[in-house]
């Protein structure tokens, strides 16, 4: 792995962590519930991207799918040598569904909150204190 490649990968890594930090900031500090939800979706997606990124491989990568049903031994060896890590992809598919489900539910709740309170500002939606 050359220095350039290493620098690029580190840069990507730092950028992902930055997205995590910024979205968490938005999640905590922004008063609007829908804004919070958008930030939450970005937060979750970034976590997903992070694990996929860790499963990447820098030797002529190909997707982890055997291109044919009747492979030869050499083809399988070539495939194993080049394909990227399938485990993070499996985990992320699960996580995407879960994030999406939670997000959907949150949006339903936000709409219901608006029906009760007439606002989406968390500082005004505060019948509960303590």
């Amino acid at each position: 792995m050359s220095m350039l490649e290493f620098t690029l990968l580190m840069y990507c890594y730092a950028a992902l962590i930055a997205v995590l930090a910024i979205s968490l900031y938005g999640l905590v500090r922004r008063p609007n519930i829908l804004k919070k939800i958008i930030c939450l979706s970005i937060f979750g997606d970034t976590a997903n991207t992070l694990i996929i990124f860790l499963g990447f491989r820098t030797r002529n990568p190909i997707p982890p799918i055997v291109p044919t049903l009747t492979p030869t031994k050499s083809l399988m060896m070539e495939f194993t040598r080049r394909a990227v890590d399938p485990v993070p992809q499996c985990l992320v598919l699960t996580a995407i569904v879960i994030n999406m489900a939670v997000l959907m539910f949150l949006i339903f709740l936000a709409i219901q909150i608006y029906r009760h309170y007439g606002t989406l500002d968390v500082r005004k939606v505060a019948r509960l204190r303590g």
Binding site: L9, C12, A15, V19, I22, S23, K35, C39, I42, T58
Partner: peptide, 25 residues
């Protein structure tokens, strides 16, 4: 090797993602 192309594009994509997140917030 084409991996360097992928990495450069990846870096661009993530940079845009950072800017976007900032703008969203």
């Amino acid at each position: 090797s084409y991996v360097i192309v992928l990495e450069v594009l990846l870096a661009i994509a993530f940079t845009v993602a950072v800017i976007c997140t900032y703008m969203v917030v």
